[in-house]
Simulated scan of single mutants.
Amino acid sequence: MAANETSAGETPATETAETQTPGTAVVTGASSGIGAEYAARLAGRGWDLVLVARRAERLTELAARLRADTGAAVETLTADLALTADLAEVADRVAGDDVDLLVNNAGINGYGPFTEVDGTLLGKVLDVNVTAPTLLARAAVPGMLARGRGALVNVASLLAFAGDLPPGPLPYRAVYAGTKGYLVTFTRTLAAELAGTPLRVQVVCPGLTATEFHLGRGDTPVAGEARVHDEGGMPAADVVTASLTALDTGEVVCVPGLHDAEALTRWRAAEHSLRENSGRSLAPRYEG
């Protein structure tokens, strides 16, 4: 276990999201679902917000509601994180001295059989799900370290662990699952790199969630009023409750629906065994 990969129930010595004096939180993908729930919950905790998404009208409505309900200062940035110029604009804001929390929630799925999904869409999945959170974290973390406070939350997916499970009922997901696997590894490795600093780093891996995520593949925003796909799933509010609770207790990997917390310990032990048993000599099964 990495130095700051604490188990459920362990409380680190650093400030928690509850005790830290709130500053400004940047939430990407904030126009609906999990992102909108993070925005509402953080505003209720006293955080000011910068909300980022492609749908300007929804951002404007959400910002107005949060200002009225909580008194939070709320900025909006209409941006498509697959576009270089838009990503650069958001990165500039994320690097601001007031930003103490970055929630990399924006993501698109590009679901479909690998040989049939348009390559341009798959490139966009990589841009939004991998490049954007990486570069936004890079923009945020140095300033947080210099100020001695801050937190990073990356929203991945339980599909990061789906591996070779076949489609049905799971979606065709080769690229999407790969991007979420990247987020899990990136976050855990960064957390280990930052062990001993005041920064808190987390990856949250929700399973099926009751949002509109499955109503589109990500090439265009879902139009109309916010709604929930027919598959249902865990309420977005519960996902955010788990994430913020885990952030307070120092869990680097948060799986909101995982009842057996020791499963994460066994997973890390299996990884350790894999690394420790891979030596410099060729394994006998590959000889000859």
Rank of each mutant, 00 (worst) to 15 (best):
Arg200Thr: 00
Leu208Phe: 15
Pro133Val: 00
Leu101Met: 07
Phe161Gly: 02
Arg93Ser: 00
Gly250Arg: 00
Leu208Gln: 07
Thr14Arg: 12
Thr24Ser: 02
Ala40Asp: 09
Ala223Lys: 12
Leu101Ile: 11
Cys205Gly: 04
Asp97His: 09
Gly233Trp: 06
Ala85Phe: 13
Phe114Ser: 10
Thr185Gln: 01
His214Gly: 11
Ala223Tyr: 08
Ala174Gln: 06
Gly150Thr: 01
Val103Pro: 02
Asn154Ala: 01
Val228Ile: 14
Ala242Asp: 09
Trp267His: 11
Leu190Met: 11
Val240Thr: 04
Arg55His: 08
Ala43Phe: 03
Arg41Thr: 14
Leu59Pro: 04
Thr60Glu: 10
Ala73Met: 11
Ser273Cys: 15
Ala195Ser: 03
Glu5Thr: 11
Glu37His: 06
Ala79Met: 04
Pro133Ile: 02
Cys254Leu: 11
Gly29Ala: 05
Tyr111Ile: 10
Leu152Asp: 05
Arg217Asn: 08
Leu145Trp: 04
Ala162Asn: 13
Leu215Lys: 15
Ala82His: 06
Leu101Gln: 06
Ala162Lys: 12
Gly148Trp: 10
Leu183Cys: 04
Ala13Leu: 07
Ala177Ser: 14
Trp47Met: 01
Arg227Asp: 07
Ala151Met: 01
Gly216Thr: 03
Thr84Leu: 05
Thr211Met: 01
Asp238His: 13
Leu282Gly: 07
Thr211Ile: 07
Val128Gln: 01
Ala160Ile: 10
Tyr286Pro: 09
Gly23Thr: 09
Gly168Ala: 13
Pro167Gly: 09
His259Leu: 05
Ala63Phe: 07
Thr241Gln: 11
Thr11Gln: 03
Thr84Asp: 02
Gly44Phe: 12
Leu165Thr: 02
Glu251Tyr: 10
Ala139Ile: 06
Val52Ser: 11
Thr249Met: 05
Leu126Ala: 09
Ser243Val: 01
Arg217Ile: 12
Phe186Pro: 05
Ala40Pro: 00
Asn4Ser: 09
Ala140Pro: 07
Arg138Cys: 13
Gly123Phe: 14
Asp92Glu: 08
Ala79Glu: 06
Gly224His: 09
Leu274Phe: 15
Leu87Gly: 03
Glu251Val: 00
Thr120Asp: 03
Ala43Asn: 01
Gly250Gln: 00
Arg280Cys: 12
Ala223Thr: 00
Ala177Gln: 02
Gly9Ser: 02
Leu81Val: 02
Leu126Trp: 14
Glu287His: 14
Leu135Tyr: 13
Lys180Gly: 05
Ala236Pro: 12
Thr70Leu: 10
Ala3Met: 12
Arg227Lys: 14
Ala95Asn: 00
Gly9Ala: 03
Thr24Arg: 06
Leu190Ile: 00
Glu225Gln: 09
Arg149His: 03
Asp260Trp: 14
Asp238Phe: 11
Glu262Pro: 00
Ala174Asn: 03
Ala88Cys: 05
Asp127Phe: 10
Gly168Asn: 15
Gly288Ser: 09
Ala140Trp: 10
Val175Ala: 14
Ser243Phe: 01
Leu122Ile: 09
Asp48Asn: 00
Gln20Val: 13
Thr14Leu: 08
Asp48Leu: 10
Glu276Cys: 07
Gly46Asp: 05
Pro167Arg: 11
Ala106Lys: 10
Val155Pro: 01
Thr245Ala: 15
